[in-house]
Design a protein around this nucleic acid. Sequence first.
DNA 1: ACCTGAACACCGTTCAAGT
DNA 2: ACCTGAACACCGTTCAAGT
Lengths: 194, 194
Amino acid sequence: MWEPPKPFTILNRGLIEAAAALLEEGGPAAVTLREVGRRVGVSHNAPYKHFADKEELLAAVAAAELRRGRDSVLRLRRGHAAVEAVRLMLHAYAREAIRHPEMFRLTYGPWRNGSAELASAADDARASLVQSVTAAQADGELPAGDPERLTALLLALAHGASDLALSGHLARKGKGHADPADLIDDLLAQLTAH
Amino acid sequence: MWEPPKPFTILNRGLIEAAAALLEEGGPAAVTLREVGRRVGVSHNAPYKHFADKEELLAAVAAAELRRGRDSVLRLRRGHAAVEAVRLMLHAYAREAIRHPEMFRLTYGPWRNGSAELASAADDARASLVQSVTAAQADGELPAGDPERLTALLLALAHGASDLALSGHLARKGKGHADPADLIDDLLAQLTAH
DNA sequence: ACCTGAACACCGTTCAAGT
DNA sequence: ACCTGAACACCGTTCAAGT
């Protein structure tokens, strides 16, 4: 079942970057293998020598983004108290979602073939957050309990607020006007004032 | 700018129902105008006399689903204490998301042309939830504060937990094993024990 | 007014052939 | 081993023509 990861050739990386750029510009429908090939300077079906199909190319784009997210989370852990690191991580999550909606939707979208590479990149990113949550609990800044479950609560709120904001379903247009960052702070305030 | 809603002809309703069935069976890609037409018994471009394009047909599917959601929310308000109604509404939200992933993703997905019909259906559904939240606040069962914002917090969590569960990003496979319903109850417990 | 069949442009994927 | 060009099946959309 398990396959060793292919080496990252120059072309491989170029295809992923071209696909990511097209995704950002016009969504998944704009990521055509013909345009990807054209931008990299190969024929429209050269990608098939590196990826089984279009979905696998997009999965590689998503995995690269998840690795970037994990590295960003690791950077935030240094130089901040644990609970503040958690707050900054969740804010960064929402900020990136709003700034790059197409990448956000791709990364957390539906994957028919559960790529192992994708799953492990996501696990790594979440594990960093779990560590900071655990440290914040040890500091008495977050309520005790299963840290995985508390992390899931925090992540679910940050994710849901971001996704609803993107689709315009977060609040009525004139009213309230709470953005994802506000809701993250609301939840943390409720959790710290227990 | 504003256009009067077209009358709901038999064919119109049939097209929407056929599109919804195809969506459930195989996602948005399976909703081809050719197959929709075939199931209803018309040619593959008869739908263009009722909807400007494929996206407008899918928007009508989403709007119908949002209206169903609003009616379901209204039913839950009767016969329950306010805070319990809120809890049941959020649980129903997550249950429907898990049971009908494609419809969930469509309903809360990206809409390039902000259909007024879609927006008002969503506003109606959320307004019912806001009313129950307000009543629960008056009962002293939920913390005081802007009810729109508190509703956004609750909805964002239910939405995010559902969406992450669907994409398998809610928690590591073996660990924690919190499902959306658990997280909803966790949040409500934190809010009521203030 | 509403529908049909043909046609167009486009895309993912396959394949025989090249180096 | 990797790439190319042609080809296939499919789809959204348009359009001239029918009733």
